[in-house]
Amino acid sequence: MAAIELDGVTKQFGSLTALQGVDLTVEEGEIFGFLGPNGAGKSTTINILLDFVRATDGSATVLGHDIHEEPKRIRARTGVLPEGYDVYDRLTGRQHLSFVIESKDADEDADELAERVGIADAIDRKAGGYSKGMQQRLVLAMALIGEPDLLILDEPTTGLDPNGARLMREIIREENERGATVFFSSHILGQVEAVCDTVGILQNGRLIAKDSVAGLREAAAGDTVLRVTLSDGDGTDDAVAAIEGLDEVSTVTADGTTLTVGCDSDAKMAVLNAVEESGSEVANFETEEASLDEVFAAYTEQQEQEQPEVDA
C-alpha cells in the first residue's frame, strides 16, 4: 500500500490554478523530497493531504484513508510540521508537548522529546518567547509524538541554523529507520539531495518529474549560467544568434546589453568567442552556479525532449 496517493488532484483558488492534475505516489518507508520553487504549489498539495484545503478535482488517500472522508484516522497516525503555523504564545513548550501526547494518546516523555530536538533548557518557558528556530524544533517534536507512520514536513528547515538543519536531517533518517515514511517539501536542492530516496519536482502546479536523487543530480549537473555584458547594445541580436548556434548552449536570453546563457560548464570560452566573432565587444562576464529555478528549467526541457509526460 502506498503511503500517499494523489490522483488527478487539481486546486483552483478563484481564477488561479494552484495545482493541475497532480498524480503522485509515495511508497511506504520512503523518504520523499517534494521540491519546487516558491509558489509552485507544494504547500497547497500538503494542505490538501491534511484536509486543510479541499481539492477542486481529483482524489487522494493517505495511509489508505480518503483524505476528506477520514481525516481523523489519518491525523492519528501522521506527524505534521505545517507551514505558516503559529504556536500558542502563552503556553510553555512542555504544555504544547503534553497536549499533543494527550491528544494522540501517546506515552512519550516531554523532557526526552525536548532533549531530542535540542530545546530541553527552554521547555518550561513560554513558546511566545522562542526564536523561530526554537518554535520549529518544538513543532517538530510535536510531530514526532506517537511514533507516526507518516511524517509530513512542510519546509522543515525554515528558520533553522545549519546545526538545526543537520539535526532535522538526522531526525528524518532516524524516523525513517524506525519505519516511518517521510514526506517533506523544500525549495532548497541541497537539503533534498542529502536525505531523500526519491524526489518529486513541482512547478507551476504540475508535477514535472519524479526521480531518484541520482537521476536529478545528473540532470542538474550539466548547466552553468553565464552572464555576458556587451559594451554596447547594437550587436545584441547578432550575438544572440551566434550563441544560439553553439551545440553546448541550451538557453539564451537578452536584457539590454546583458545576455544570460545557460550552457555546459566547459563551453564558456566558446560562448565568449562566438560573441567576439559576431562583432560585439565583451565588457564583462561572470558565471553563476545554477540556481534551483535554472536547474528546474534545464530539467524540464530535458524531460520534455525525452518524455513529454511523466507518470509518477
Binding site: K72, P82, S103, K104
Partner: peptide
C-alpha cells in the same frame, strides 16, 4: 488567521 489552527487540526480532531 495566526496559524495555530493548523497545529490543532494536525492532531486527531475533526
Amino acid at each position: 488567521e495566526r496559524g495555530s489552527l493548523k497545529i490543532l487540526l494536525s492532531l486527531p480532531y475533526t
